[in-house]
Nucleic acid binder design. Structure first.
Lengths: 340, 340
DNA sequence: CTGAATTAGTAACACGTGTTAGTTAAAACG
DNA sequence: CGTTTTAACTAACACGTGTTACTAATTCAG
């Protein structure tokens, strides 16, 4: 037994004793055609009675639009696993899309096999792509952009004209490090959130460098270590930092998740936070407030980022054009007890 | 200037000097028709040269299938925000779907305004629905099921015949509490992960009760408090527990995130974990290992849950039928330092 | 009263695909 | 040689929708 047959606009037309055209006019509120009030009511009643809703496949075919955006995640699986930041972004995207009557198709992509998402466009599955975590070596991306496919990046890509939204991570990192400097720290370590081939990692590192330069502190490359999204990487990096002499008196860890690993290393070394070593994180994940000690960190507008991304992509899709092609959202410092 | 015109199967046909039908036969590897090797090559070359990929809207229209599944999340926004469990599930679903050539449409739904997702089906946007966090008062769900719409629940719903996948949370909770009992604890508190109107919360509570009964320990309702996904709720609940006399010597917190709040409350009361109070969590979020102390918890096969859900839903969609309508995945105890 | 304008609605096409029923030419058979 | 089978393809329809061009009936202007 197959599923019950779908009701089509033809069924509605038949029940209301009008043509299918008339049904279409009424249900889509087409302007410029005149329909008598009586007929309109008859059609609307029929539609309601049959519980009619139009088949998107038909709509799609004739309009060329799918009213769906593709949210492509170029993060590695392990990042997605540990990233407490992502759900909020996704929720923001969804909310913006829903408001405009769009749907969201989720497409995690292995960063190594990038470009597999192009088929979403060529097959007309989605009207545009919201790309989180763009990579520079992504040639498929450039190709799509040249073909004027609506694309919006979440995260920046140097040397391109593709519009993007991003958080001002550099400024955020600078905020974090400046905070430490103002509290008297001079020897400040850093653990990145990811390998420096990721723009997001580079930006945060640059913010760190900026802050030091501004304060005329000397920069010691030995103080900068790489994390890779995981607490484990923070744990290991911190152990290395603790072996340095003189020991840094503070650390800026460019990811809360990584910072939690780092803090565990500090505790296991029987050092106190912030007395022996101050720690500032980045992301303000929900748990940051409830760590011991509560983590000073940089709050990112995660939901807002997703929302802005979705909203702007849809505007591009609808050909409305953006008055400013790109948007940088500001972050803010949340002072808790892991820093003095 | 509008986007470049899509290339259709007609273009391929023209270039290869054959009919559109032939193109369709070749590209879909239709069996039972004979095509000369030469023609086949000509068509395949033409398709490649034009970079042709079929428009899903057309396919959809004629086949009635969309090769897309809807992943409907009935969690409240705050739960999604704090739930570190979700990304892994989503990834599992995506992976299973991709393997079968399906896409995943993400649809968070406000639990209060349930049923809005029915349109995904009636509009033919998706072929089936994977529903995470089903609610008993969801009448739209029952209605869809009666209409033989392919549905699979992630989480159980009593008194229905809708197939589901779930983790055996009751057994998991029992594991956790039994572990505490074996280590000599007799007065064990519990903080739920969510209000008891959620099945997942009730299951975990039942596991707790089971374990106590089995060990012939008496049950004290005052020892059971409610959390609501957030660390904050765990913090508050724990503060209440600490005021009881005699104080419980151990706590089972049915969510790692909530447990982190609870542990902070313990520390602020200057009590030691696990010496004064042992703590066991639930979920095994990535951060559990790196808390201080590392959290003993129940590991849930999050990725496996998503994967099984996606895989089984697609099997239902394709009419293959499941040999067992439902699946319970087992969880396991991860012993770390927050318990003796 | 006549031609023009308005009202209310419809027939017919287009979108891109899969598929059934047929057609033509060559090969096989008796 | 005449008939049947087979290989290699194609014309035409169906899917459900939006939209343009058109018609028939009524109202309006002069």
């Amino acid at each position: 037994m197959r599923p019950a047959k779908r009701t089509t606009s033809r069924d509605v037309a038949k029940l209301a004793h009008v043509s299918r055209t008339t049904v279409s006019f009424i249900l889509n509120n087409v302007s410029g055609v005149s329909i008598s009030a009586e007929t309109r009511k008859r059609v609307l009643d029929a539609a309601k009675k049959l519980n009619y809703s139009p088949n998107v496949a038909g709509k799609k075919l004739v309009s060329g639009k799918s009213y769906t955006i593709g949210l492509v995640l170029c993060q590695s699986p392990e990042q997605i696993f540990t990233d407490a930041f992502l759900p909020q972004v996704i929720l923001g995207v969804e909310q913006a899309a829903m408001q405009q009557g769009f749907h969201v198709l989720l497409k995690p992509v292995d960063p190594n096999d990038t470009g597999g998402y192009a088929r979403l466009i060529t097959e007309n599955h989605v009207d545009g792509i919201l790309l989180s975590g763009p990579r520079q070596d992504d040639t498929a991306l450039m190709h799509l952009h040249e073909q004027r496919v609506p694309i919006l990046l979440m995260g920046q890509l140097p040397d391109t004209s593709i519009p993007f939204v991003d958080v001002n991570a550099t400024a955020g990192a600078e905020l974090a490090v400046t905070h430490l400097i103002e509290r008297g720290h001079q020897r400040i370590g850093m653990i990145t959130n990811a390998p420096l081939s990721y723009t997001s990692a580079k930006q945060r590192r640059d913010g760190y460098l900026h802050a030091l330069k501004k304060a005329k502190l000397l920069i010691d490359k030995a103080l900068i270590l790489e994390g890779n999204y995981t607490p484990a990487s923070g744990f290991e990096a911190m152990k290395s930092l603790l072996l340095l002499t003189p020991r840094p008196t503070a650390v800026f860890v460019a990811s809360d998740v990584v910072a939690m690993g780092a803090m565990l290393a500090i505790k296991q070394a029987k050092l106190r936070i912030p007395k022996d070593i101050a720690v500032v994180g980045f992301d303000d994940i929900p748990l940051a407030e409830y760590y011991d000690p509560p983590l000073t960190t940089i709050h990112l507008p995660a939901f807002g980022l997703g929302w802005a991304g979705g909203e702007r992509l849809i505007r591009i899709i609808q050909g409305e054009g953006l008055n400013d092609t790109s948007l940088l959202l500001e972050s803010k410092l949340i002072t808790r007890h892991s820093s003095p």
